[in-house]
Structures are given as structure tokens and as C-alpha cells.
Design a protein around this nucleic acid. Structure first.
Length: 385
RNA sequence: GGGCGGUUACCGAAGUAGUCAAACGGGGCAGACUGUAAAUCUGCUGGCACUCGCCUUCAGAGGUGCAAAUCCUCUACCGCCCA
């Protein structure tokens, strides 16, 4: 793998070479938690020119399960996606499914929310699962801490997360060594060094500066291909996210990609790009699209390099609720200046109609639009001079 | 012509004397959503003041009762049955 920065001021721009191709940073990953960007075909996602999507180990383990993925040559073959995939380990589910799991030093025991069956995630089996999925960027197992969170809890959690990170790295290296001579993680095939996936560590420590710094330093000692900032956007104020990001990016190695997990709103992403983050993912564009909340640019292009010009939503976009009555007879596209296939074809009136009759096409069209909004935003950030 | 059953807010449907402006669905209106248990969730949905409130409603009209969507009478309409 190689991460090349071509520009660092005022924002970082670069390329990240992955087994399934080059990804241009900074980038946003549409979310395909269970092997589908909800409501979209793989062709839709390709047409949107996404270079990488995110999926989830915990959810894929349950359905379809590793056996099916193995038979399909991984998630790429299963969903017919030939570009890159990053997989989250299930660390977010430690947070979001907190009611049905138990953490021990060894790992996390879940009781499935689907059928009650037991799923035990360990640093090692999560790495193995991600090899089976065929992930381009694998995430270590961590605990995404809740908010608010006491210092004592955050510290104890971080100790476990760091121990898991070390075990993930060790197991990952072992599998990579095996792969060089055709190990079981690769179906007996040898893996060329260029096809090696990446492994990212995840910074935790809640809102506590010393814990965040400790987390960064310990992860850097272990050594990862990239570093994620986790445990944010779980209920805290925006300025706290900003603070945590700055603590982290000031310590993390400059020559490795930084990934702000689960973030966020457009202004959160733009601000964080200016604060040195290279990678993002968030459910917002797809979930809100399905719920009829659409992003409309109010400024056609990013004209300024000033960070402060974009940190409020009012500065460059507005939100359109397509289900609202005012769009009943509105023949304009969602965003007249948008070039996505939805906006070049359909009216607000028609899309509102699709929502009102409950047809899933409405969700597909709006998801295309919102993802296009996010990807175009990233594209413009990468083009800033 | 006779006998039964029905008529409740935009729609469907509870409620058969007081705690009823009236449950619950749907529809409508508005809002939320940040590594997706989310095609989900929340609020409002007779009018007016919107802070204890006040006013007009349960097919229509008239009764009985301190009190009626609820009981009685007639009328209108709908359904089933007998002629």
C-alpha cells in the first residue's frame, strides 16, 4: 500500500493505493452496512463514482454469514462491486447494541438482535472475518464509548481497546505472513504484497484529552497503516468533536491516512478536512434521503480556502424536506444546479408523489442525490487550490 | 307494506348515561436522524384562546334526566330478511 500526499496546505490531498484501486483523499464512503448501499444497485453506486464504500463485519457475520461470502469470493464478488471496501469491525455495535452484549478482556459476546443466537467477537476472529469479506481496509476491534461517559469508564474501556488493537495487529501480521505462502485466509492463493489490505487502529478516550493522547501514542507504537478517530458523534456537541479531532490529528503521523469515523454533516466534514482528516463515512446522506431530507447547494462551488467559510450549514447548503406540502406542484428538480441522474430527470413534485405513495423508487432517487451531494462536495475539496 | 340491524371527527373503527372533544388504525401536517436493530422514530390533527381555560360536535328534530355520543319518540338515509 502507499499513501501519497500531494498537497498539505491548507488541506491534505493525496492518493491511497488499495488492492481494488486508487482512492483519492480526502474522501467520503457511502455506507453499505449489510452489503448494500440501502435502496441502491451496485451500478447506481458505481455511476455515482464512489471509489470506496463501507461495510460491517458484525452484520455480515450474521447475514449472509462467512460461508456464503467465501463461496462468492468475498463481498466484492457477492455484491458485484469491484472498487474498494472498508469494513468496520463491529466496534460501533458494541455501542449501538449495548443492551445485548457483554465485554470481557477476551472479546465481546453479543446476543443477536435477529434470532437471539450468540456471536462472540474477538480481535482475532474479527480480522479473519475481514479477510474472508475481502476488505481493502480493515478496522481493529474496539469499543466505541457512549456519551456521556465517566473518566473511569473511558480509561478502563481504552485499556481493553488498546489491548485488542495490539492483538489485531499481531493476528493480522500472522495472516499476512501466511498469505505470502498461500494461507487459509486467502483460499490457498498467494497474496502479492500489492494486494495486501490495510489495517487501521482506532483512537478512543471519549472527551478526555490525556486519554485521547495516550490512545494515539499507544496505537502509533503498535503501528498501523492508518488511524481512525472513533467514539465521536455519539451525542456530544459539535465543538467537542472538533476538539477531539484536533487533539488527535496533531499527534498522529502526518504520512498516514486519518479517518474520522461516522462523521457527519456536510459542515462537520468540511471543517474536519481543514483540520487534517482524510476519510469519512456517515449514514446521514443515505438515511436522510430515505426519510425525505435532501441536501441542496446554495453556493455552487467552494470559492474560498478559508475554513471558517464552511463550518456552518448556512454557508453552502440548505435542507429540503421533499415530503412537505409546498413541493406538491413544484416542477423543479431537487437542486436545479445538480447534475445527478435524479435531478436531471425528475421533478420535486414527482419525487414527493413517490414518497406519498410509499414507492421505494423515491428512496432510491433521493439516495442517489444525497450521495452525489456528498461526493461532489469531496471532489470540490480535493480541487481547492 | 312488515321485521330487524346500522348512521361517531378526512376515512375506517371503539365507546351504550357522568372520569368524552371522544380510544385505536389509516390518511394528512410538521420535526428528528452523525463507524445503520432506522423504508425508522417523535409531535400535532373540531374551533378559539394556546397558562388553570372557553366554545361547537357523535345523521336531523324533539323529549326524559342534575347530567346524553350513550335512554325515549319521530324523520332521513344505508344494509339484511319477510311479503
Amino acid at each position: 500500500m502507499s499513501f501519497k500526499l500531494t498537497d498539505t496546505s491548507p488541506i491534505r490531498k493525496g492518493t491511497l493505493r488499495l488492492p481494488h484501486g486508487i482512492v483519492h483523499t480526502p474522501f467520503f464512503m457511502p455506507i453499505a452496512t449489510r452489503g448494500v448501499v440501502k435502496s441502491l444497485t451496485t451500478a447506481d453506486v458505481r455511476d455515482l463514482k464512489a471509489e470506496i464504500i463501507l461495510s460491517n463485519t458484525y452484520h455480515l457475520l450474521q447475514r449472509p454469514g462467512l460461508d456464503i461470502l467465501k463461496k462468492n469470493r468475498g463481498l466484492h464478488g457477492f455484491m458485484k462491486w469491484d472498487k474498494s471496501i472498508l469494513t468496520d469491525s463491529g466496534g460501533f455495535q458494541v455501542f449501538s447494541l449495548a443492551k445485548m452484549r457483554k465485554i470481557t478482556d477476551e472479546g465481546v459476546a453479543f446476543q443477536s438482535e435477529i434470532d437471539g443466537s450468540r456471536i462472540f467477537l474477538t480481535p482475532e476472529n474479527v480480522i479473519d472475518a475481514q479477510f474472508t469479506i475481502g476488505s481493502d481496509i480493515m478496522m481493529v476491534l474496539d469499543e466505541c464509548t457512549p456519551y456521556p461517559c465517566t473518566y473511569e469508564y473511558a480509561k478502563k474501556s481504552l485499556d481493553i481497546t488498546l489491548a485488542w488493537a495490539a492483538r489485531c495487529k499481531k493476528h493480522f501480521e500472522k495472516r499476512i505472513r501466511q498469505s505470502a505462502r498461500g494461507g487459509p485466509a486467502f483460499g490457498g492463493k498467494k497474496l502479492s504484497p500489492k494486494k495486501r489490505p490495510l489495517l487501521f487502529g482506532i483512537v478512543q478516550g471519549s472527551v478526555f484529552k490525556d486519554l485521547r493522547e495516550h490512545s494515539c501514542k499507544e496505537l502509533m507504537k503498535i503501528g498501523f497503516d492508518g488511524y481512525a478517530i472513533g467514539g465521536v458523534a455519539v451525542g456530544e456537541e459539535t465543538n467537542e468533536i472538533e476538539t477531539i479531532v484536533r487533539w488527535s490529528t496533531s499527534l498522529l503521523p502526518k504520512d498516514k491516512p486519518r479517518y474520522l469515523m461516522g462523521v457527519g454533516k456536510p459542515e462537520d466534514i468540511v471543517r474536519s478536512v481543514f483540520d487534517g482528516v482524510d476519510m469519512f463515512d456517515c449514514v446521514i446522506p443515505t438515511r436522510e434521503a430515505r426519510h425525505g431530507q435532501l441536501y441542496v447547494r446554495t453556493k455552487s462551488a467552494f470559492a474560498s480556502l478559508r475554513r471558517d467559510a464552511y463550518i456552518t450549514s448556512k454557508s453552502f447548503y440548505s435542507v429540503l424536506r421533499i415530503k412537505n406540502e409546498v413541493y406538491k406542484n413544484d416542477l423543479k428538480p431537487i437542486d436545479p444546479k445538480c447534475s445527478c441522474s435524479t435531478c436531471t430527470t425528475y421533478s420535486r413534485s414527482y419525487i414527493r408523489h413517490l414518497f406519498h405513495i410509499g414507492d421505494p423508487l423515491g428512496q432510491r432517487l433521493t439516495s442517489i442525490h444525497n450521495i452525489n451531494f456528498y461526493l461532489r462536495m469531496m471532489n470540490e475539496l480535493r480541487s481547492l487550490k
